[in-house]
């Protein structure tokens, strides 16, 4: 790239790795697919809005926010795993996994609530 070499800034060399298995790319793409699935679920919630009112709308907004949070972390995530691959040591991302798992459990629970408990308008 013809970028200015004089900026010893944020994402220069640490973004590079020599892994022929392309682990950082695959992991980042796996997060990408996951957040797209999340967006699909959020869009499906919109179908409930005419019948159930604001609650599914809030759910839809929350899933969209979660997807945005994942998007915002993608660059950091890639850099971090690339650095981990090249240094031979990485730390498991407990917070991301626990947060995603909990968020999907809660979303499913909320959808269950809509199905069994929410009155149809």
């Amino acid at each position: 790239m013809a970028g200015p070499p004089a900026t010893p800034g944020r994402c220069t060399a640490p973004g590079l790795h020599a892994d022929p298995g392309l682990q950082p790319e695959r992991t980042t793409l796996a997060w990408n697919r996951t957040l797209l699935a999340l967006v699909v679920c959020g869009a499906l919630f919109l179908r409930w809005v005419p019948r159930h009112g604001a609650f599914p709308l809030i759910l839809s907004a929350l899933t969209a926010i979660l997807a945005l949070v994942i998007v915002a972390g993608q660059a950091r995530r890639y850099r971090r795993s690339a650095r981990g691959i090249s240094s031979g040591r990485t730390s498991a991302d407990v917070a991301a996994v626990a947060g995603t798992s909990a968020a999907v459990v809660l979303t499913a629970a909320a959808a269950l609530l809509v199905v069994v408990a929410l009155p149809v308008r």
């Binding site: 892994d19 298995g21 682990q23 950082p24 695959r26 992991t27 796996a30 997060w31 697919r33 996951t34 699935a37 999340l38 699909v40 679920c41 499906l44 795993s81 981990g84 691959i85 031979g88 040591r89 990485t90 730390s91 498991a92 991302d93 996994v97 995603t100 798992s101 999907v104 979303t107 499913a108 959808a111 269950l112 199905v115």
Partner: peptide, 25 residues
């Protein structure tokens, strides 16, 4: 690190399965 990342991707594959079931529901 490759195993840690592979474990993370496997988790994400399961989460997508869960999301597909959620979307189906």
């Amino acid at each position: 690190p490759r195993f840690t990342l592979a474990n993370e991707r496997t988790f994400l594959a399961w989460i997508r399965t869960a999301l597909a079931l959620l979307a189906g529901g």
